Amino acid sequence: MGFKLLSKLLVYLTASIMAIASPLAFSVDSSGEYPTVSEIPVGEVRLYQIADGVWSHIATQSFDGAVYPSNGLIVRDGDELLLIDTAWGAKNTAALLAEIEKQIGLPVTRAVSTHFHDDRVGGVDVLRAAGVATYASPSTRRLAEVEGNEIPTHSLEGLSSSGDAVRFGPVELFYPGAAHSTDNLIVYVPSASVLYGGCAIYELSRTSAGNVADADLAEWPTSIERIQQHYPEAQFVIPGHGLPGGLDLLKHTTNVVKAHTNRSVVE
Score class of each variant (00 low, 15 high):
N262K: 11
S161Y: 12
Q235M: 09
H117N: 03
N262H: 10
E101N: 14
A234Y: 04
L249E: 00
A165R: 14
T261S: 12
S137T: 15
I104M: 05
G246N: 13
D79S: 11
I17Y: 12
A66K: 13
S62I: 06
E150N: 05
F168Y: 06
L195K: 02
A200F: 03
P23S: 11
R120E: 02
G2P: 14
L96C: 01
R110A: 13
V37Y: 15
A111S: 14
E157L: 12
A94F: 13
Y231K: 01
A51K: 07
H154T: 09
P35L: 08
E80S: 10
H252Y: 07
T222K: 12
L159K: 02
V146D: 14
E150M: 03
A59K: 05
V189E: 04
S137W: 02
L73M: 15
I100D: 02
L96K: 00
V171D: 00
Y231T: 01
R120G: 04
L82Y: 06
N184R: 00
S264Q: 14
G177T: 01
R110M: 08
I58S: 07
S56W: 15
S62Y: 06
R206P: 05
L173S: 02
I100V: 11
S7E: 10
G158Y: 05
E225D: 13
G122V: 07
Y188H: 05
H252C: 00
F116T: 00
G163V: 05
L6V: 15
A209W: 06
T207V: 13
A178G: 10
D125T: 09
Y175D: 03
Q103R: 14
D183L: 02
G2E: 15
L106R: 10
Q49L: 10
E172C: 03
S30L: 11
Q228G: 10
A215H: 05
L159D: 01
I17Q: 07
I20C: 10
T36Y: 12
R263C: 07
I201N: 06
E80T: 10
C199S: 03
G198E: 03
L73G: 05
D119M: 01
A165L: 15
S139R: 11
A51W: 08
L156M: 07
T222D: 13
L127N: 00
G148Q: 08
E219C: 04
N71A: 04
T109A: 12
A90I: 07
D183S: 01
V108A: 07
E44S: 13
I227D: 01
K258L: 11
Q49H: 13
P107S: 11
L249D: 01
I17H: 07
I224A: 01
V67K: 15
T140F: 04
S193Y: 14
V256F: 06
E39Y: 11
A66V: 15
V28H: 14
E99S: 14
Q228W: 11
A165M: 15
L185C: 03
E145S: 13
C199M: 01
T134S: 06
I17K: 13
D164E: 10
S62A: 11
I17M: 15
G53V: 08
F174G: 01
E99N: 11
K91F: 08
L195G: 00
L247E: 08
S162Q: 12
I50F: 08
P170M: 04
A234W: 01
A178Q: 08
K251F: 10
N211K: 08
Q61G: 06
G169E: 05
R76G: 07
P232D: 07
M1K: 05
S113P: 06
V171N: 02
I238A: 00
P41H: 12
D248V: 08
S161N: 12
E99A: 15
N211S: 11
E145P: 05
A51C: 06
S113M: 06
G242W: 04
A129W: 08
G78A: 09
F174R: 01
A87D: 00
A165F: 15
V171H: 02
V187W: 01
P239A: 03
P107C: 05
E147M: 14
